[in-house]
Design a protein around this nucleic acid. Structure first.
Length: 473
DNA sequence: AGCACA
């Protein structure tokens, strides 16, 4: 008998199925587009997008087998390939007879996201990415040994930019490392999804030398994740009292040192600041101004790292650095999510500044004349009187959206960032809704963060003097 | 360019 050897890979003809498997789809491909593609041939009753390792495959299911056959046949003999937005899409019968798993109605927006974190080096994500959550004591995580946990942490940090993350569960699958991330509502979830899907975790959140970690995001059908324990693979941020380290991970080894106890990242008087979404120039003087709000800045050294700008900022003492870090972390130098700061403690205690130039400066030695001794925008005056920088940043350097009261919303973040906003910058100065042109305080870049009082920052009277070693919890 | 949520 000339029986066909049916090695699955080489079968030219799969058995027909109402379900078609599509590949080589564009990222932006939506369920609507899939339906559009199939509609000429019949009724599409179900779809599944973002399938496969690259999330660029999909399934569509027709109401009737003949409709699927019609579509396959048509494109088998057509000179024009099937396309979605100009991209050729390859079709074949699926090896399944129906789309299983379909979430309730489709890829319907919910408050829980299914996130796949791709990247060969994802396991190397540092604990540093956690530091965005000052209240969140994650010291127990340090004990963790698992790569999954670290990617989990990265997910927390990244997604917190869009709103409060209630819960995260993670799991390892063939598709890779995945997480379910629960927000309070679908709006928040969808803003996170829209902003983050297909993007890489910014390199400043990752240690040096590690490759990109890409996020692939779809909606989950879940609405409320069940997290029974705080573990390295699941966390409930709404319930800090949840028991730690369940049997799930034989987590015996965990010295669960205080869920409200000690800090793990050693504090330092020197901060390492990374600047994200740097749509506008950030100069030494700008950094000096910003960080001076919390105390005398002794030294600053700027350098490029991983394609981004970083700076080491030295204060005379740890307490000041702690204050600055707590206050500035995650905030933007400019309104609109521009030049967002990420701050961790440096291992340095005393920077060695070889030369004073536009990238590094020792404010303790010469040029003290221009160093404004009074340390705070924050402390007293609502009107910033920070030291006039050596090179006044002419308005053109910055993109000064109107001087919004209130710190920029962290929600913008790197999220929508990339494509947004670069165009009209100097123009906005004159368009300032409140100030006549030229009314801008010369010391302050227009649109810059106003440390004095507003949202996240402790303000004026409410704020203990910067040097007070008080606990700001 | 080759088949999916623990």
């Amino acid at each position: 008998m000339a029986s066909v050897s049916s090695q699955p890979q080489f079968r030219l003809t799969q058995p027909p199925s109402k379900v078609l498997h599509l590949r080589n789809l564009p990222w932006e491909c939506t369920e609507e587009e899939l339906i559009e593609l199939g509609k000429p041939f019949g009724k599409v009753v179900n779809t599944k997008c973002n399938v496969g390792a690259n999330r660029n495959q999909a399934f569509i299911e027709f109401a009737d087998l003949n409709q699927a056959i019609a579509m396959i046949s048509y494109y088998a003999s057509s000179s024009e390939p099937a396309q979605v937005r100009g991209k050729t899409v390859y079709l074949q019968y699926s090896n399944r007879q129906e789309i299983v798993n379909n979430k309730t109605t489709a890829d319907v927006a919910g408050n829980v996201l299914l996130v796949t974190i791709e990247g060969a080096d994802a396991r190397l994500v540092s604990i540093d990415v956690l530091h965005l959550e000052p209240h969140q004591d994650i010291s127990w995580l340090l004990q963790g040994q698992e790569k999954t946990q670290q990617r989990h942490d990265a997910a927390k940090v990244v997604f917190s930019a869009f709103g409060f993350v209630h819960k995260i569960t993670t799991f390892e699958k063939t598709a890779g490392f995945q997480a379910l991330v629960q927000f309070s509502d679908a709006e928040t979830a969808s803003s996170a999804k829209n902003a983050l899907d297909g993007r890489n975790i910014p390199s400043y959140l990752l240690p040096e030398h590690i490759g990109p970690c890409t996020l692939r995001i779809t909606y989950s059908a879940h609405t409320d994740l069940s997290v029974k324990f705080q573990s390295h693979r699941s966390r409930d941020y709404t319930n800090p009292n949840l028991p730690v380290a369940p049997s799930a991970i034989d987590g015996g080894g965990l010295f669960s040192v205080g869920l409200d106890g000690k800090k793990l990242e050693p504090e330092s008087n020197v901060l390492l600041a990374s600047i994200e979404n740097m749509q506008y120039a950030v100069t030494l003087d700008v950094l000096h101004m910003v960080f001076s709000a919390f105390g005398a800045v002794q030294k600053i050294a700027m350098f490029d790292k991983n394609g981004g700008l970083q700076a080491l900022v030295q204060y005379p003492d740890v307490q000041t650095a702690v204050m600055a870090k707590e206050a500035l972390e995650g905030h933007c130098i400019y309104d609109g999510g521009f030049c967002k700061l990420h701050i961790s403690y440096s291992r340095h205690n005393d920077l060695s500044i070889k030369v004073n130039n536009d990238r590094s400066r020792d404010y303790t030695i010469h040029s003290t004349a221009m160093l404004n001794p009074q340390p705070s925008l924050l402390g007293q005056q609502p009107v910033p009187t920070v030291g006039q920088p050596a090179h006044p940043y002419s308005g053109t350097q910055f993109a000064p959206p109107p001087e919004h009261p209130g710190m920029p919303q962290p929600s913008a973040g790197w999220a929508a960032g990339a494509p947004a906003a670069p165009h009209s910058m100097p123009a906005q100065m004159s368009n300032h809704p409140y100030l006549p042109p030229g009314a801008m305080p010369p010391q302050m870049g227009p649109g810059m963060m106003h440390m004095a009082g507003h949202s996240g920052l402790p303000q004026g009277s409410a704020m203990p003097p910067p040097y007070r070693p008080g606990q700001m919890q």
